[in-house]
């Protein structure tokens, strides 16, 4: 049942993505509104499927790659809708909705069987640590998308190509401010995710920090984002440099999140 609803949500996300892409090409406002509603409907379905899965498995569905990507897509969708409710950043949907769909695909291609929870993960810290971390990933994804938009728009203006793309994207300053806003919420959550993980590690394995590859890469990611925020707030870094740095930070984050699990086995290898 949860699988069926999950698939329905997936199709709603695809439809919404198509809508946002049509909107950015034709600039028809009503299409964007409809796409947003479809995305919202998909989100409701998705929420139901996650709750059902929680009920069936009797533990927070945040263990396998399937669940983690699903929750990441869900968080990104929530973050996007909340963000748009406040800021109405134009063309953002066309950049974020494909990423949501991509996370859903990544979730779908991983096996979704519910496996018994290994003893090490049986703790109330599991939902806390995992959800905080993934929500921070969602916000950093959002700031990544906005930074990509910034770089595209900045390139258009620098090269004086003031055509269709230029017209469709928001202004530079707005993009920069919005990317920073997402960073300012995402980074503290990332920090909190690492702290809760460390407390949990102490309880489960008796050490706060054991230099497991995942931990090491988390620290590297954290340092990158910390440096970026520091530069922004003290020296006034912004614009292109900051956007590049956001993208580098995000790629590192992706490696920490996915790459480490596949390439460098450790305690965090998701049950696959």
């Amino acid at each position: 049942m949860d699988r069926f609803i999950f698939q329905l949500a997936f199709f709603a996300y695809i439809a919404a993505t198509a809508g946002f892409l049509v909107n950015i090409i034709t600039l028809r406002k009503e299409v964007e509104r409809i796409a947003t509603y479809i995305l919202g409907a998909g989100l409701c379905l998705h929420t139901v499927s996650i709750i059902l899965r929680w009920v069936y498995s009797k533990h927070a569905p945040l263990v396998s790659f399937h669940d983690v990507f699903s929750f990441l897509a869900w968080s990104l969708c929530v973050a996007f809708l909340l963000f748009q409710a406040g800021h109405k950043l134009k063309a953002l949907g066309a950049f974020v909705s494909p990423v949501i769909t991509l996370f859903m695909i990544l979730s779908l291609i991983h096996p979704s069987e519910i496996l018994p929870l290994p003893p090490a993960l049986q703790s109330y810290w599991l939902p806390i640590h995992a959800s905080i971390s993934i929500i921070s990933y969602a916000l950093l994804t959002l700031s990544f998308c906005i930074s990509v938009m910034y770089l595209i728009q900045e390139h258009q203006i620098k090269k004086k190509q003031l055509g269709a793309i230029f017209r469709r994207l928001p202004s530079l300053q707005v993009l920069d401010t919005m990317a920073e806003k997402c960073l300012k919420i995402g980074f503290p959550l990332l920090t909190l995710g690492i702290i809760t993980g460390s407390i949990w590690a102490e309880q489960a394995w008796g050490a706060y920090w054991s230099w497991d590859p995942k931990e090491t890469w988390s620290l590297i990611t954290w340092l990158l984002y910390a440096a970026l925020l520091h530069q922004r707030l003290t020296v006034g870094w912004r614009g292109r440099k900051s956007a590049y740095m956001t993208i580098v930070g995000y790629l590192t984050l992706l490696f920490t999140f996915i790459g480490v699990t596949y390439l460098l086995p450790g305690a965090h290898s998701y049950a696959t």
């Binding site: 728009q153 203006i157 202004s171 530079l172 300053q173």
Partner: peptide, 9 residues
């Protein structure tokens, strides 16, 4: 118009 595309408001 260009200024608006750079600074927004």
């Amino acid at each position: 118009a260009l200024a608006k595309k750079i600074f927004g408001d």
